[in-house]
Computed example of a mutant assay.
Amino acid sequence: MTDASGEFAECRECSMQFPQNGGRGRRRAYCSLACRRRAQRQRDGRRRRPPQNALPMGRSIAEELYSLAFDLLEAEYGRADLGELLGRARSLAKETDYYVSAAVRDARQRAVSWEEVAAGAAVSVATARMRWGEAHVMRRLQMRSVERAAARQAPASVPDVRPKEGREGVGRASRQLAAALSQLHQDSGLMIREVAENTELSPSYVSRILSVDRTPSWPVVRQLVEAFGGDPLVLRVLWEMAQGVPPAPQDFIDAATRLNGVLRGLHLAAGCPSTGEVCEQSNGALVQEEVEAILAGTEVPTWETTGRFVTAVGGHPADIRPQWEAVYSTILGACDPAPKPAVPTARQQDDGASSTEER
């Protein structure tokens, strides 16, 4: 059925002919409501098109979510207390809420309609508009920026006072720990999936640890080393160094064991080169008997020998110096113990008692 006026117009969207209304009022530009909405979306997209070099806001928040989720998983595997677990879960949930707001805004910047947003979020169009309107989303993201700025300033009262060399040593220890774990994994012949099953860790978590993504807790390191068939004590000192503050040894045996452990850990991180290869890397400064004694822990090497060995296996002697000094400090302490307080003789005690009675 055509309009009484018999006048037709061409739709601006699909170019189809349609009967134009012949009475008073605004003349139609589109043949249907669908074409009108499609044209509106295109106009919105042209107006809202972001700069070509602008990164999606949701991406940076998603990266933070990844980090928070990893922290929560690490705390779970480390058997953290319930308070810490729930605190990390709250942070993750809050950041997820911020991500949803940013993701919707990114989608709207790409000219995604409110109908599509509502369908993706399983809410009505009216709810989507109210919940993720431009002004509301920008206020929320501004609030997030303020919270993050405050969080960055919070630790300022306890600054990292370690010298640059100390911070670099922590990074080197983290990489060496991961390299040693990777070597043990390679020697074990186990697949990542098998390691995950044996340790009750997720395969992705194991992969991140082996790729130096983050230093895990000691219980997780011990689980992995045992699953690979290695000795956890070999990597204990390297793990402590990666934490930044290794505890002081208690006695000579403890100090010597720790020094031997870190030297064996560095040797493992280097791929377990043969004694001949270590000697070759030292340019002949070491002989095979010295290398064998260092790895076996049968004697405490001099600092000159220790430094040559550490350099030959790709380490930094300055990182190991505190462990070596701890051994020799205990030796010196045993040779020259602190003087004991003098114990008064029976005669001195009697004389003291007499003088007290006279007073």
Rank of each mutant, 00 (worst) to 15 (best):
V123L: 13
M57K: 08
E200W: 13
D213T: 11
A179E: 02
N21S: 02
A149P: 07
A80H: 02
E134G: 10
A151E: 11
S204N: 11
R27V: 14
D254R: 04
M138P: 00
S113F: 04
D106R: 01
G307N: 10
E64G: 11
G265S: 06
D350I: 13
D350C: 06
R38S: 15
V262N: 02
E115C: 04
R152N: 11
V221I: 08
V112I: 14
C279S: 03
E200H: 14
G45M: 01
S217R: 14
P50A: 01
S113R: 05
G297Y: 12
R43I: 05
S15T: 14
V245K: 10
E277A: 15
G261P: 03
A242W: 02
T330L: 12
C35F: 08
R24S: 07
F309C: 05
S101L: 09
T96A: 14
F309S: 05
L55M: 13
L263V: 05
R258T: 09
R193M: 04
S124V: 09
S207A: 14
S329R: 12
S329A: 14
Q20N: 03
R88L: 10
R27W: 05
L268Q: 04
S217V: 13
Y77W: 01
W324S: 06
V237G: 03
R79P: 00
M1K: 14
D213K: 08
P155F: 02
M16Q: 15
A128K: 01
R131D: 06
V287I: 14
G265A: 06
P301E: 00
P51H: 10
R38M: 12
F70R: 14
D44F: 04
